[in-house]
């Protein structure tokens, strides 16, 4: 395959970015999108040029590191797929592919296609955890959990925190991410101890990080590589409003 790649280059968070165009020849349709970038970078290194910086880690769709905004969509044209699991067979010979970093005030560009996503870490640190007693592990199946709740919690827990929801949202809102993280714990007995304070603190941290607010467009869920449902956002709204009404912190 022969491709034209328009890729965002930016030296650091302070400098102005620009698009750089590269012609790639002999790309195998069986390569993953990131392997195509590896080919580009090897070519750039051989030409004594700076390779394109991009985030990646597991390359099997579970770590949430890869983050490319490909042809106007986070993680490219396929549904329910991360950039690393996207293959060049999803494109046609002669295509021009535009690759940009996630764009959000709360996700500043560090270099080229790499963005700073520690705002997500701070939201998790604010309340996305459960307190666990030390000591012997409990017997398995000791706590009865309805199957529906377990399924919903599992579906929410599939969120890999890649930030595609923020990248897709016209308001750069992090509601789908936060709602998945609140839901996975709110649905299970283990998450009840910090249930109200969790919703309050995680939303407060989300607002502080400068994400936009949710206008229910649904673009987040449509682009989510783990297909996290909008039901989670409704649940977060319930959790948050319920927490504000019932918690004793004035």
């Amino acid at each position: 395959m022969n491709l034209t790649l328009k890729v965002w280059r930016q030296k650091n968070s302070q400098s102005e970015g620009y698009f750089e165009t590269h012609q790639l020849t002999g790309i195998s349709p069986d390569m993953s999108f990131l392997e195509m970038f590896d080919v580009l970078n090897e070519k750039l290194v051989e030409e004594n040029k700076e390779p394109v910086a991009f985030d990646h880690d597991c390359r099997e769709g579970i770590c949430g590191m890869c983050s490319m905004y490909i042809n106007g969509r986070p993680h490219g044209p396929l549904e329910g797929v991360t950039t690393c699991q996207l293959h060049m067979r999803s494109f046609s010979d002669g295509d021009t592919i535009v690759v940009e970093p996630w764009r959000a005030t709360a996700f500043p560009v560090i270099k080229d296609l790499v963005v700073e996503r520690s705002s997500f870490d701070r939201i998790i640190a604010a309340g996305g955890f459960v307190s666990v007693n030390t000591g012997n592990a409990q017997d398995a199946n000791n706590i009865p959990i309805p199957k529906d709740d377990a399924d919903d919690a599992f579906a929410a827990a599939a969120c890999i925190g890649c930030g595609a929801c923020v990248a897709a949202c016209k308001n750069a809102s992090a509601m789908l991410f936060v709602s998945a993280k609140v839901s996975q714990l709110a649905l299970l007995p283990q998450g009840q101890a910090e249930r109200t304070i969790r919703a309050e603190k995680m939303v407060a941290q989300m607002d502080e990080e400068g994400f936009g607010s949710c206008t229910n467009t649904g673009a987040c869920s449509a682009e989510c590589p783990k297909e996290i449902s909008l039901e989670n956002i409704a649940r977060l709204n319930r959790e948050y409003l319920g927490a504000k009404l019932s918690s004793k912190s004035v």
């Binding site: 970015g17 106007g72 764009r103 016209k170 308001n171 750069a172 809102s173 649904g218 449509a222």
Partner: peptide
């Protein structure tokens, strides 16, 4: 006011957008 605030949440715009949401929802 909310629209202005939400626009600030993306200080650098995308070059190309293929949004997977309804036109209405994006143009409220």
């Amino acid at each position: 006011y909310l629209e202005v605030r939400n626009r600030k949440a993306r200080n650098v715009k995308y070059n190309l957008i293929r949004n997977q949401s309804t036109w209405s929802s994006r143009n409220m």
